[in-house]
Write a protein that binds this DNA or RNA. Structure first.
Lengths: 249, 249
DNA sequence: GCAAAAGTGTTGTCCTTACACCCATGC
DNA sequence: GCATGGGTGTAAGGACAACACTTTTGC
């Protein structure tokens, strides 16, 4: 077996070989700077968008970067992600989920930094960007290039996560206005999944789920026949969430 | 907007406001000890098992703990997880996947420690445990209690991950011997998903996938009619992996 | 011959897919 | 009236769920 480090042996009492001073134990661990990076998706003009800033860092001059920051002492990482979102965009109450941790020792040019990637979804219309430092703005997902660090890889991981997730959970509504037409919803799915879907089947699918509430309102200012506007029935969804079993690969 | 910390302002050059010394930047970040915890699943006697040790730590005396260790300097976390597995069980070439990062500042009594949970699947028969320090042994998943730290929560997260994952990917075969009967396979699914499945439909499902290779061998030493033994056709699976699109929630 | 599990088919239901026409509105 | 997208139905095929009996082996 592996030889115990001297520090560990010291910490153990003689009777039970239990470590008594857990603070000393933790102090003996190597420490690593931790950051959180937020991949913030939006949807506008029938395109999936990502919020990026110019990198602060000279060697990445001209390159784009995710919104990230280090985690403060004793800050839970979920809270750090919400904090970054708030600081950079002024928004709270945004959908946010942890996706994956990236730990390649060479991923940051300044030394080892581990980063935890979070994915957020927000509605571009509802949330005007007020803080435009570092050229903060929305980029079309399909034209993303020239990223600092390993941020391209992180964005791709979040995109894959989103593609999978949106098919199994009602996330997409976070990217749309409260009231939306079926066409907008379909455009959203098509943009994220990168496929085209049959309009009739798409509508039938959502009709059969019976999770859309007809607001009685119609689209306005469209240059064609206006469609009905719907809301998603989150309450009903939460109540009827079913546990699904099936083998499929 | 958020006021820039003094250290940041210092690091920026006057012309472009770009940070020149990235090492100084990274040195200014708070540092956190990082550990990796492995939830190692096995399958034996028709039960899902988890590999646990007794906690080292006095205040958790008598409690069970996951196999974990801190990440070494400049060690990628995936590598750390493989290392722990190797050190503790002597095994390599084991299925392993990152599940989630846990960062509650109070999760470790010795101070803040962030841990990244990994899930491994291995075949209990093929891998005899040779290193039994800290009472290392297999516990039935259903009788797990009395865990140190937040390890109960971590195990549950990995179990949920496994339940979902096994339905969509051919992971389960990692828990079985190379050659297995359909009954063993079904028992595995039933144990992990906590449901009972119709035997005929289960067999039909796998027959229609056409991913099992009939080895021509039969079970031996069973007190009833022996079943055929199969292998999983990983090559064929990899070649035909299809991208699935469908909305279902 | 008895216990225990292997092995096998059919039917009904539901879901998915593919596909085409008329309707309402803005211009 | 023309362009644009809204809104709808049907038929065929495929997947899944429910269900029972015969066969093989060990003991």
């Amino acid at each position: 077996m592996k030889k115990e480090p001297a520090v560990l042996a010291e910490l153990k009492s003689h009777e039970g070989l239990f470590i008594k001073d857990v603070h000393k134990l933790v102090d003996s661990y190597p420490r690593v700077p931790i950051t959180v990076d937020c991949v913030i998706f939006g949807f506008d003009e029938n395109e999936l968008k990502v919020l990026l800033i110019r990198s602060d860092i000279q060697i990445y001059k001209g390159k784009w970067s995710l919104l990230g920051d280090f985690a403060e002492d004793n800050e839970e990482l979920d809270d750090a992600a919400y904090r970054i979102l708030k600081e950079r965009t002024g928004m709270s109450d945004v959908y946010l989920d942890q996706v994956r941790t990236f730990s390649n020792p060479k991923r940051h040019p300044g030394g080892r930094v581990i980063t935890v990637a979070y994915c957020s979804l927000l509605n571009i219309q509802h949330h005007e960007l007020k803080i435009l430092d570092n050229e903060l703005h929305w980029h079309s997902y399909n034209s993303i290039a020239n990223m600092a660090f390993d941020h391209k890889e992180i964005i791709e991981a979040c995109h894959a996560w989103l593609q999978k997730r949106i098919q199994e959970h009602p996330l997409g509504f976070n990217l749309l206005p409260d009231k939306f037409s079926l066409r907008e919803l379909q455009n959203l799915y098509e943009a994220i999944l990168g496929v085209s879907l049959d309009r009739r089947n798409f509508r039938k699918k959502f009709a059969s789920m019976d999770l859309l509430i007809d607001t009685g309102e119609m689209e306005e200012d469209v240059p064609h026949r206006p469609g009905k506007l719907y809301k998603f029935n989150f309450d009903k969804y939460e109540k009827n969430k079913r546990k699904w079993v099936g083998i499929d690969f």
